[in-house]
Design a binder for these strands. Structure first.
Length: 714
DNA sequence: GTGGCCTGCAA
DNA sequence: TATTGCAGGCCAC
């Protein structure tokens, strides 16, 4: 809605705030009324919700029965009637039936870069923090990267510290106060005090917390030292664990959710201009408030984690993991630019050929990359039978085109074109743009994105490098270890299905994993009642598809799509599967029932995923909720186990003083850039630590390969 | 420029 | 009308 604000510049949001403020302004302050404006100078700027709120505000006021009070020319005489009316409307609008004032920052903001004063401040902070493990010291770094290079190195402009409820101090980086000075001070503090910030990974290049620098041991589920000694606390990770299905966890969202204090977005405060150019007072104000939000929200988030039984997950898995992700990002992976270019050029030649052939066959030139134009050419101009429709036209997806390809060369060409164009734009050219001046690609591993607890990778995404087809897989040859080194690549064998066996306690499935090598074949043998040796390739393929489907929270439709069979056939497979492994069905029913009751499903290590869809009135949405309830504990537990393995691998490498470094994680796979004389050691570490990261009722098997590039090692 | 849509890559 | 992601190209706004 049009911004309502009072004389002090405090923003009031929504119709509730507007009326509350109006009421408070009425007595003896007639002029204040004029501060409100109903002008909608440009309606298109406002969302429907905003227009609705504005109209609602107008309605409430005009229903007062005393409209003349709102007339500018008559002032606000007789406002007591209006106040009484507004009072009653407020109670109706308030969710709690109570009228409360929006909390505001009440912070004394101090700014200094005088060395003596700063020394004193850190001394005071230490004294405060060392007094009690619950005395959190909030800190917030004002940092900025430069956009023109591929480098992700950020500059630090200043730091805010908050260690009491009433004040915070901003220390600009200037004169004697350098980035490394601040880093050293934080490292010192972290020995005795609980530091709390937002997005701790972002600052690890400045300081390494004592709990990391002084550590060489892996994950210990029995450790409870977080109850007695100070540990670093990241409010971003904490807020994510408390509710992993939100879209963003910006600091202003944390302020709003946990403190109920509105806080302006960084982009709104500073716009697009560099914060190095920004007004010093504005910087101090923003940073100090942010550090205050960290300090004040930490105990609230921690309480929530404790109530949900996620303190161990937070302190012993996610917090140390954040450092490991930082280290992997910093290490990066070499990508050979020249090879990438050669690969791209090779693709370009074939793409040009295909383009020509496609235009010729179509009888016109058009944009093959446009599904709209492509659909028109194929299904109207050439009159091919259209199958599926999308919201905006014909579907030209691969599964549709594949059915037409055998009879139509143009369609086969289009499919080949698509495949090559994808490789060129996303992988060959796309990856090349991310090669840093050190010849390496430094991806970002994101810890607070997925609903299930997985890590994600961006800029670039190194978790979806082609694997399935040979021509795509060749991309992996451009990823190489440094001179003389090799890659060690270890991946879990069917970890999700093994977790299902463990969690469902199904006797047959557990037995199958103790029996032998090929789970899909064993399943086929049991499901189709044929001897293990007599399982046909088709039977094995079908069993494999069902195994996958089960993990995703199967539907007969989905399975039928995957196998290109009828729904009833798919249903038959599923029934047979559940007959074979009845414990799986019982388990799935159990987790759905439990999720319906509690609203969440959870992993072996206590990670929780809320599933609001289970309460939806829409049938499809509810069905989706059930599939999610079945999948989340499995995918999430796999993520937990991998994270534990990463912690154990990382600190073991450190403990044994190795030169090799963890560089990639792809959900069930780890890649280590391995020193030549450490090949065997690293292979053993990966295999042992990954296989022993959790104790399941079935073995966790790991395959580890050594290679001179990622193509070879995978 | 931004965002929705379609498409396709991985585990 | 199978789970979790990220990204490029197109195209309407």
């Amino acid at each position: 809605m049009p911004d309502f604000s009072d004389a002090e510049g405090n923003r009031i949001s929504g119709v509730y705030g507007a009326i509350y403020k109006l009421k408070s302004m009425l007595p003896g302050n007639e002029d204040a009324l004029f501060a409100f404006s109903f002008e909608k100078d440009n309606e298109s700027e406002y969302t429907p919700a905003v227009l609705y709120q504005t109209d609602r505000f107008k309605d409430i006021l005009s229903n007062a029965g005393v409209p003349e009070l709102l007339d500018v020319s008559k002032g606000a005489a007789g406002s007591s009637e209006l106040i009484a009316y507004l009072e009653s409307e407020l109670v109706k609008l308030s969710p709690t039936g109570k009228v409360t004032k929006t909390p505001q920052f009440e912070l004394n903001i101090i700014k200094t870069s005088d060395l003596n004063e700063v020394e004193e401040i850190f001394k005071n902070a230490h004294e405060y923090g060392a007094k009690s493990k619950d005395n959190y010291i909030g800190y917030f770094l004002m940092r900025e990267g430069n956009k023109d290079t591929a480098s992700k190195k950020k500059d630090t402009v200043g730091i805010a510290l908050c260690f009491d409820e009433k004040s915070a101090v901003y220390i600009p980086v200037e004169n004697f106060i350098s980035e490394s000075y601040i880093g050293n001070k934080l490292a010192e503090l972290s020995k005795d005090c609980a530091l709390v910030t937002f997005d701790i990974k972002d600052g690890y290049d400045i300081f390494e917390p004592y709990e990391i620098s002084g550590r060489t041991s892996g994950y210990d589920a029995e450790d409870t030292s977080y109850l007695t000694s100070p540990k670093c606390f990241d409010t971003l990770i904490g807020a994510y664990l408390c509710n992993p299905i939100k879209n963003d966890y910006a600091i202003e969202d944390i302020s709003k959710e946990y403190l109920k204090i509105p806080f302006d977005k960084r982009s709104d405060v500073f716009g697009k201009t560099s914060i190095k150019e920004a007004d010093a007072d504005k910087l101090a104000d923003y940073a100090c408030k942010a550090s205050y939000i960290c300090k004040t929200s930490a105990p609230l988030i921690r309480e929530k984690l404790a109530k949900a039984g996620m303190e161990n997950l937070f302190y012993y898995i996610e917090m140390p993991l954040s450092y490991i992700l930082f280290a992997m990002e910093k290490e990066g992976i070499i990508a050979r630019k020249d090879e990438l270019k050669a690969y791209s050029d090779k693709l370009a030649i074939r793409i040009a050929e295909l383009e020509k052939a496609i235009y010729e066959a179509a009888g016109c030139e058009f944009n093959i990359n446009s599904p709209k134009q492509l659909g028109e050419v194929l299904f109207e101009k050439l009159g091919l039978p259209a199958e599926k429709k999308t919201k905006s036209g014909y579907s030209t997806a691969a599964d549709v085109l594949e059915k037409l390809a055998p009879d139509n060369k143009i369609v086969a060409d289009i499919l080949e074109y698509r495949g090559l164009a994808k490789l060129k734009s996303t992988y060959a050219d796309g990856l090349a743009a991310y090669i840093d001046s050190d010849g390496r690609i430094h991806t970002s591993f994101n810890q607070t994105i997925t609903a299930t607890g997985r890590i994600s990778s961006t800029e670039p995404n190194l978790q979806n490098i082609p694997m399935r087809t040979e021509e795509g897989r060749l991309i992996r040859k451009v990823f190489v270890p440094k001179d003389g080194y090799v890659f060690a690549d270890a991946d879990y064998s069917q970890i999700e299905l093994r977790i299902l066996a463990h969690m469902s306690e199904d006797k047959g499935l557990i037995e199958a994993y103790h029996e032998g090598e090929d789970i899909h074949r064993i399943t086929a043998s049991k499901v189709f009642h044929v001897p293990f040796e007599d399982v046909t390739p088709l039977q094995r393929r079908n069993a494999k598809a069902v195994n996958f489907g089960i993990v995703y929270g199967i539907s007969s439709f989905g399975l039928s799509q995957d196998l290109s069979i009828s729904r009833s056939e798919a249903k038959e497979y599923m029934d047979k599967y559940f007959e074979t492994y009845p414990g799986v069905k019982e388990y799935q029913d159990k987790v759905i029932a439990s999720a319906k009751e509690t609203g969440v499903s959870d992993t072996l290590f206590g990670r929780k995923r809320p599933i609001p869809e289970l309460k939806a009135s829409n049938f499809n949405l509810r069905q989706f909720g059930e599939r999610v309830a079945m999948n989340a504990p499995i995918q999430g537990t796999a993520a937990d186990i991998m994270k534990i393995a990463m912690i154990n691998v990382f600190f073991r490498i450190k403990r044994e003083n190795l030169k090799s470094r963890l560089i990639l994680q792809i959900h069930d796979e780890l890649v280590i850039e391995t020193a030549p004389d450490e090949k065997d050691t690293v292979t053993n570490i990966l295999t042992q630590e990954m296989e022993s990261a959790a104790d399941l009722s079935v073995p966790m098997e790991v395959d580890c390969h050594i290679g001179n590039d990622w193509y070879e090692s995978k």
